[in-house]
Amino acid sequence: MRVRPELRHLFAAAFGLLVGSAASACGTDAVGIDACREIESARCEATQACGATEAEAMHCIDLYRDQCLHGLQSGQEPGADATARCVEAVHAVAACARAGAATMADCPAEPLVAAADPAAITPCVVIARKPEQLADCAFVAKPADTGTTTPSGNDAGDAAME
Rank of each mutant, 00 (worst) to 15 (best):
M1R: 14
M1V: 05
E6I: 10
L18G: 13
V19Y: 08
A22T: 15
S24D: 03
V31P: 12
E38L: 10
C44F: 10
Q48P: 09
Q48T: 14
C50H: 04
C50R: 06
C50A: 07
A55F: 03
E56Y: 04
A57P: 08
M58G: 05
M58W: 04
H59M: 09
D62Y: 04
D62F: 04
L63K: 15
L63V: 01
Y64S: 06
D66Q: 11
L69G: 09
E77Y: 03
C86I: 02
E88V: 00
A89F: 03
A97F: 00
A99C: 02
G100A: 05
T103V: 04
A105W: 05
D106T: 01
P108C: 04
A109Y: 00
E110F: 00
V113N: 11
A119P: 02
I121Q: 11
P123H: 06
C124W: 03
C124T: 04
I127M: 02
A128R: 07
K130P: 02
P131R: 09
Q133Y: 05
L134N: 07
D136F: 03
D136M: 10
D136H: 11
C137E: 08
T148L: 06
T149F: 07
S152M: 10
G153C: 05
N154F: 05
A156S: 14
G157I: 00
A159W: 06
A160Q: 13
A160W: 09
